[in-house]
Structure formats: structure tokens, C-alpha cells
Design a protein around this nucleic acid. Structure first.
Length: 199
DNA sequence: ATGACGATTTACT
DNA sequence: GTAAATCGTCATA
């Protein structure tokens, strides 16, 4: 399965994180982006760049690639190509299902000064962005390289099952403005009307 | 060894 | 809308 196909197929499926104490955190994937590897100027693996960080992208499909950026955020991807082909799908937003209280605590909602209203209740506050969902689900680069098809602490389930193509919206990717022609490529998908989608 | 930058988020004007 | 936060990674030397 290529990265674009996987990006669409992942929407509607459930990402699950099991904490050391057995607590289950989960959410339905509602927004993804495909990164096409060698030719894709926006990809970390552009021109086949292979380093300790990007190595998991070269792994078999279903390998997690988690990176740390801006000195404070993690982002999670799923390797999508055959071994040696560094293509991947970035998970950009989830609709939270299980463990919302723990997610809110992980996100440090409720301890921010001056906050008005009930924090963490607005759609998207917990998992409405690639950095947010990793923080909420306690996903760090410790998970980079794990096999999502067999890891007991981080994996993907059937969830809602396949989503009809007509319910998906396809746009350019976010935050890749410096990628020239590739900045405009329609490689982002999200569930139409879902309030947890970023942007 | 050093410097520039980043697949972001948040707070502030 | 603009800017700060904050540090690992990568290319260059």
C-alpha cells in the first residue's frame, strides 16, 4: 500500500496507547498527510536522506516514525512503503475516545493561568494537531521504530472501519511552505466536518 | 565545534 | 496577525 492510499485508509481507524499502569488512551484518526520520500521536498527523507532519526521510515510498513521538533513537540508517522522506501503517513488529528482525563492532564490543560471556561472541552484541544496528539497520548521518540502491528503499548485497531471516499476532504499539506512545488501537492486528508481536525 | 532551522503550539498585540 | 518558546538534528568546517 502506497502512502496516499494508507493516508486515506488510516482515517476512521483507532490509535491505541497503553500506559505502563494499563490505562488505555485512544482516539479515531481523522486527519492524515502523506510524505512521498525521495522525490518529496517536504519529507525528512527527501533525496533518500537516511540518518539515525529517519531510519524508521525505511523500515517495513507499520513501523512508527516519531520525531521531535521545535524543541518541544513530537509528531508521529506510520511507515507506508516496502523496506528501503522511506515514505510515511503523518497522523495530524484524532477524535479522542478513551482516557480523556489523562489526555487533558498530559496536555497540561487546566493549569494554564488566566484560562476561562472549562479547559480541554473544546474539540481539538486534546488531539487536534500532530504535536497535541502525541502529547495527549504520551507518544515520544522512544516509540520511533516500534512495530505498530505487534507493539503492546502503541498500535492501531479497526476502529470505525473504512470511511467512504466521499466523506474525505483532500487538500495541500500544512506547514510545508518551503517545499516549492511540493507545498501545493494535495496530500492531506481529513474527515469532512469533524471538529477535531486541525487548521 | 558551530550555526541554522524545523511536517508546531501558544500567548500576546 | 505576529512572535516566542526551546533543543535535537543535520550540514558545514
Amino acid at each position: 500500500m502506497g502512502p496516499e492510499e494508507l493516508a486515506r485508509a488510516l482515517i476512521g481507524r483507532r490509535l491505541v496507547r497503553v500506559l505502563p499502569d494499563g490505562t488505555r488512551l485512544s482516539g479515531i484518526i481523522v486527519e492524515t498527510e502523506a510524505y512521498l520520500g525521495v522525490p518529496d521536498k517536504a519529507a525528512h527523507s527527501y533525496r533518500g536522506r537516511r540518518t539515525a532519526r529517519t531510519e524508521p521510515m525505511f523500515g517495513p510498513p507499520g513501523t512508527a516514525y516519531v520525531y521531535f521538533t521545535y524543541g518541544m513537540h513530537h509528531c508521529m508517522n506510520v511507515a507506508a512503503g516496502e523496506e528501503g522506501d522511506p515514505v510515511a503517513v503523518l497522523l495530524r488529528a484524532l477524535e479522542p475516545e478513551e482516557g480523556l482525563e489523562v489526555m487533558a492532564k498530559n496536555r497540561r490543560l487546566g493549569e494554564r493561568a488566566g484560562g476561562r471556561g472549562a479547559p480541554g472541552v473544546r474539540p481539538g484541544d486534546l488531539c487536534g494537531g500532530p504535536g497535541k496528539l502525541c502529547q495527549a497520548m504520551a507518544i515520544t521518540r522512544d516509540f520511533s521504530g516500534v512495530d505498530l502491528t505487534s507493539d503492546p503499548n502503541l498500535y492501531i485497531e479497526e476502529g470505525w472501519g473504512p470511511v467512504e471516499a466521499g466523506r474525505l476532504v483532500n487538500t495541500a499539506r500544512i506547514g510545508v511552505g518551503g517545499a516549492g512545488e511540493w507545498a501545493d501537492a494535495p496530500l492531506r486528508w481529513f474527515l469532512a466536518g469533524n471538529p477535531h481536525v486541525s487548521g
